[in-house]
Nucleic acid binder design. Structure first.
Length: 808
RNA sequence: GGGCGUUUAGCUCAGUUGGUUAGAGCAUCUGCCUUACAAGCAGAGGGUCUGCGGUUCGAGUCCGUAAACGCCCACCA
């Protein structure tokens, strides 16, 4: 028997254990079609917040849905413990920087720390009812993952999609590494806009450049104007003299110059910003790199060498001003790109880096984007926009410690890269030696290991390869190429989704998945995205689970439209709590009335039973349609609507028949039993997608025809009850109106109706005649009088028996 | 500045291909202890569907346009 009250805490931990012990979510290849899910490995850098719960729950619901539709679910969970985010976490916990701790010790700490957090993450996701097979979970720095990531690198290098080149990259002189564009954060700062006087060497023509970064004067390699800028085109082709620094540089025309910005004359330094890099490449300009790695001016710069960047800025303005070169100084607020971790402004550094070719295959990436179904569809635009606008090849080198090492050494003599052999992977070039004795190029026998590690995206972009055990003997390529679906939030379309497509294209020439499902964001109250960096995630998932239960949190997570942002709302949680409570109560009611029930072939359903079965059948059709489009929220909404109708109307009607067979007859009672038996079973299945715990509890108590409700299969009903649905709905409207009459008279719903006069069309008359006993019992009708009308219906008279009320 | 999305009741949200009187929950109000459920049940009030223009017999829904908000990108001259 079901308990009087549902104890979520006790039941959820009970079923969690049961699922684990019985390997309910185990993946084993068999004759069934595989549905595979490529779900994002969360970054192991602290805490899981409510936004993760939202997004992962929606994916999870798809896994459960597909499992109930008979698919063999391949749903591995991963952890992205590789790279800078983990390093930052360790540095924070240790209160020391990586280079202070030392490479080996630091890596050890990274492994220990990420293991600790992964354990926590795994527990949290398990508690949320994530139906993943933990036996096939992966980490992005495990030996097997490193092997696959390195294999991927070697494959791309051998195909010529990967190259090693000296090139500028984003550099943080606080954290001492190049960083990814994804790690940038824009920040508004107050600074000054300095108007500085320049002259041409040829004819002393004066012109003014406005700059926020005068300390870059020693790094100027060129001055640019727009070719169509009539105010300045007299400068084109001449030579500019840089004040104080005493250097001459050419003046060139380029259309990228915006004549309306600043004075319309731009100084190009190597490097102040991305445009400088663009021009540097385009015009093959010299390199004058004046910053040290830790943010000072290099010693070779006269007068300013050794100063910090900001000190130099101050000093050079003073010097310029004294020499009469400063025209004016304006206060300015502008956006600068900073490193999200330390908040320090980012610079550029030039060094040899590994790049993956993006620019030569943009068309192919767009083509693959077109082959994939995007849900919701408009997310495809974001992908296309990113691919169309991308301007650089993908730099995958990081001057850090905790990540996948490049399987590469360089010849000490000629610099030739020596790649590891695939069969030797994984390798750590710092520890391991290359398999060849001598450089094939110059026969030198000394090699220098590559000390950089790969960008974390370089590894997370091979999750499909990790999942299919790329390169292994007993791999899953057969059914994971392509995978069925990739799920993530919209912010990483440009990174995770894009890079995965890039790699899949280079490895296989095909798309990595057939479908992409993009979830929205969780917003805090004032339309603000919840994120760790903004510090507005004050709702702890683990506390919420304790307070409300996982099923209730899942209700919230599974509401709303796919791809649409959601506000964290306690009201929605409350609504879920009520729904779950109702499921429990109605199940208790049904259990009570199925005590003597034996399932057998039966077709002679009562009219009202046909009505509810028909509605259910229609509802489930829509429910399935929504889920096939990955609209979990709309599916739940649809199901919920039916469920309340079922409770408030159908159960209220059928209960009389169930309680009093002596009055209604055994067969009509059996019809009701059969109906609630069928519908509860199917309701539990449908709800199990969202509420895996409570539905399992009820299922095991009432049905248990399989090891778990999550291993059953949804088989849509196939009745033809259209007529009953239509007329039954009208009948419910009449019941509702009659109840309203009682409510308006402030009397109990049990108050008898002395006389009810109805005018009914033929169909509705037939419906009410056929369900007369149910109808009369539901409303406590003493006398029912029916008149015929051609169309529609009307309630002509309701006379309540108020006497009986008083007698009670 | 570019791309995309959102705007529906006081609040949080639904509203399939245009089609009666735009729906839920919360909140408010009125009743009801009804052999599952008071964490419940039956009702009531509450809307210029962001504004403007258009297509149509008919627009919350389609088209154009403006605004507000959000996300992503660009923006260091």
């Amino acid at each position: 028997m079901l308990d009087k009250k549902y104890d979520a805490k006790e039941k959820e931990s009970k079923w969690l254990n049961y699922w684990q012990e019985n390997k309910i979510y185990e993946f084993k290849p068999d004759e069934r079609e595989v549905f595979s899910i490529d779900t994002p490995p969360p970054t192991v850098n602290g805490k899981i917040h409510i936004g993760h719960i939202f997004s992962y729950s929606q994916t999870e619901m798809i896994a459960r849905y597909k499992r109930l539709r008979g698919y063999n679910i391949f749903y591995p969970f991963g952890f992205d413990d590789n790279g800078l985010p983990s390093e930052r976490l360790v540095e924070k916990e240790q209160g020391k920087k990586a280079h202070e701790i030392g490479r080996e010790e630091f890596s050890k700490l990274c492994y220990e720390t990420t293991d600790k957090y992964e354990e926590e993450f795994q527990q949290l996701f398990s508690k949320m009812g994530v139906s993943t097979d933990w036996d096939i979970h992966y980490k992005t720095v495990s030996p097997s993952t490193i092997k696959i990531s390195q294999t991927s690198f070697l494959d791309l290098a051998s195909k010529g999609h990967c190259y090693h080149k000296e090139s500028p990259a984003l550099w943080c002189n606080e954290c001492l590494t190049s960083i990814a564009q994804a790690e940038l954060e824009t920040k508004t700062i107050k600074t000054t806009f300095n108007y500085i006087k320049f002259k041409t060497v040829e004819d002393n023509e004066e012109f003014i450049i406005a700059t926020t970064r005068p300390e870059l004067l020693p790094a100027i390699v060129c001055v640019f104007v727009n070719p169509n800028d009539t105010a300045h085109n007299s400068l084109i082709g001449k030579t500019a003299h840089i004040p104080i620094i005493d250097v001459d540089v050419p003046i060139i025309a380029d259309e990228k110059v915006d004549a309306d910005k600043g004075t319309g004359v731009v100084m190009c330094c190597t490097f102040g910003d991305q445009t400088d890099i663009f021009w540097w490449k385009k015009y093959n300009l010299p390199l004058k790199y004046i910053f040290t790695d830790d943010g000072r001016i290099v010693d070779s710069v006269k007068n300013y060498g050794g100063l910090k960047i900001k000190e130099a800025r101050k000093q050079i303005i003073e010097d310029l001003d004294q020499a009469g070169f400063v025209v004016k100084i304006e206060e300015l607020e502008h956006e600068v790109q900073t490193h999200e971790r330390c908040g320090k402004e980012v610079e550029y550094a030039v060094m040899k880096q590994w790049f993956i070719d993006i620019m030569n295959h943009k068309e192919d990436f767009l083509k693959i984007g077109n082959e994939i179904n995007w849900y919701p569809e408009h997310m495809h635009n974001r992908y296309d926009e990113w691919v169309n606008n991308i301007a650089w090849d993908w730099c995958i080198s990081r001057q850090r410690y905790f990540g996948v090492p490049f399987p590469v050494w360089y010849c000490k003599e000629c610099g030739e890269p020596i790649f590891a052999k695939k069969e030797d992977l994984p390798v750590n070039p710092i520890v391991d030696k290359p398999s060849i004795e001598k450089c094939p190029n110059c026969h030198c026998s000394e090699f220098i290991p590559e000390t950089d590690v790969m960008d974390t995206w370089a590894t997370s972009s091979v999750t499909p390869l990790i999942n299919m055990r790329y390169g292994e003997k007993d791999n899953y390529e057969k059914f994971l190429k392509p995978m069925s679906i990739r799920t993530n939030a919209s912010e990483i379309i440009r990174t995770w989704d894009f890079y995965t497509i890039v790699k899949s294209f280079y490895h296989f020439g095909t798309r990595p998945w057939n479908n992409v499902m993009i979830s929205g964001f969780v917003m805090a109250d004032k339309g603000e995205k919840i994120s760790k960096s903004k510090g507005n995630s004050n709702v702890e998932p683990i506390k919420l689970i304790e307070q409300y239960s996982a099923d209730v949190i899942r209700y919230w997570a599974g509401s709303g439209r796919l791809g649409t942002d959601i506000v964290f709302s306690e009201e929605t949680l409350l609504r879920g709590k009520k729904l779950i409570n109702k499921i429990w109560n109605v199940s208790k009611f049904i259990e009570m009335h199925l005590q003597d029930y034996k399932d057998k072939e039966f077709k002679d359903f009562e009219y009202v039973d046909k009505w509810i079965l028909g509605i259910f059948q229609d509802m489930e059709k829509g429910f399935i349609k929504y889920l096939d489009e990955y609209e979990v929220g709309l599916a739940l909404n649809h199901l919920e609507k039916f469920f309340w109708n079922f409770c408030d109307n159908y159960i209220e009607i059928v209960k009389h028949r169930l309680y009093r067979p002596e009055e209604f007859g055994e067969i009509p009672r059996y019809s009701g039993q059969k109906t609630i038996y069928i519908i509860l079973y199917k309701l539990l299945q449908d709800f199990s997608i969202f509420f895996p715990f409570i539905t399992e509890e009820i299922y095991q108590e009432l049905y248990h025809d399989a090891k778990s409700i999550h291993l059953t299969e949804i088989k849509p009903l196939d009745y033809n009850f259209d007529k009953e649905v239509k007329n039954g709905n009208d009948m419910v409207l009449i019941i509702s109106e009659a109840r309203g009459e009682k409510s308006n008279n402030n009397v109990s719903l049990k108050t008898p109706i002395k006389n009810l006069d109805l005018s009914l069309n033929a169909d509705l008359k037939e419906a009410i005649e056929l369900s007369k006993k149910d109808f009369k019992a539901t409303l406590f009708i003493e006398n029912l009088n029916i008149k015929d009308v051609k169309d529609g219906y009307s309630i002509d008279n309701i006379e309540l028996n108020l006497e009986s009320e008083k007698e009670d």
